[in-house]
Write a protein that binds this DNA or RNA. Sequence first.
DNA 1: CTTGTCTCTACAGTCGCTTTAGACTGTAGG
DNA 2: CCTACAGTCTAAAGCGACTGTAGAGACAAG
Lengths: 149, 149
Amino acid sequence: MRGKPMTIGRISKAAGVKVTTIRYYESIGLMGTPDRSESGQRLYGSDAVERLSFIRHARDLGFAVDSIRDLIALQTTPEADCAAIDAAARRQLANVRERIARLRALQSELERMVRSCEGGVIATCAVLASLADHDQCASDDHGPRDLAL
Amino acid sequence: MRGKPMTIGRISKAAGVKVTTIRYYESIGLMGTPDRSESGQRLYGSDAVERLSFIRHARDLGFAVDSIRDLIALQTTPEADCAAIDAAARRQLANVRERIARLRALQSELERMVRSCEGGVIATCAVLASLADHDQCASDDHGPRDLAL
DNA sequence: CTTGTCTCTACAGTCGCTTTAGACTGTAGG
DNA sequence: CCTACAGTCTAAAGCGACTGTAGAGACAAG
């Protein structure tokens, strides 16, 4: 399955992942150590492109690097059953749904702000008023905000 | 407008922002340097709570810290007009809409994945197949992924 | 041979905080 | 008063997921 070896730049283009990011993935153990040319340049087969595409796709879907590591580990134990992977996908889906809900709330609030901002002086700016408006609506939980965006 | 001075813990509770985060905001110049008690503890008036609520709300809406600094600066020059603030809100709204669109695509893909995963062995897991599926669908732009989530 | 593009390593920077460590302060109960 | 214990202080390191930089070597095309 491995055609002629490719340099890092080529698989970067092929997989749509930056060169530096590929090296980073290697450093955190997502990509494994590739062969090297005599002069020390990394050489990859097409399996590396597939792996990178897998990683990129999973990242695009919002999977954390740790989850991806798990998925890759599961992939290499084909006798296991699908349940773990299904569970990961479901968690991710719940996560995405929550983010969407949050963002939709932000969207309507921002729309309201923009609609009500009809010029005028700062002192009366509805946008600032909206922001200053400290209704404790939902969550005084002090928790991490990383779901917000 | 300034009632009896409050310790950092109290305004933390009042504004829903962690103590450490308040100190951090001070360190990056979002909050200004408060008075201190004899023993060196920070003392705030209720205006600090309002400022914190403003910051928190803006952060919840996805405004970057730099934008918030700008908004605060604008607030203190009340002769300026509303246009700059309106523009910031519009930028933010466009940003949020894009995030929502991206997330909706992820949602339907994840839904499809979960639907098609009906048990079985890893080798045939549809979720993994979806992830391995490297259709270059949209964006091989190598750009920053921070819009993704 | 020269030019220009890759590639290498190692490390610092990004953003928006959170965590840690160790010391000090303020307060309530006994 | 003493003791607990919660709150506060500073400075610095850590997080996730990369990105950017510097300086040097490698390789392909003209």
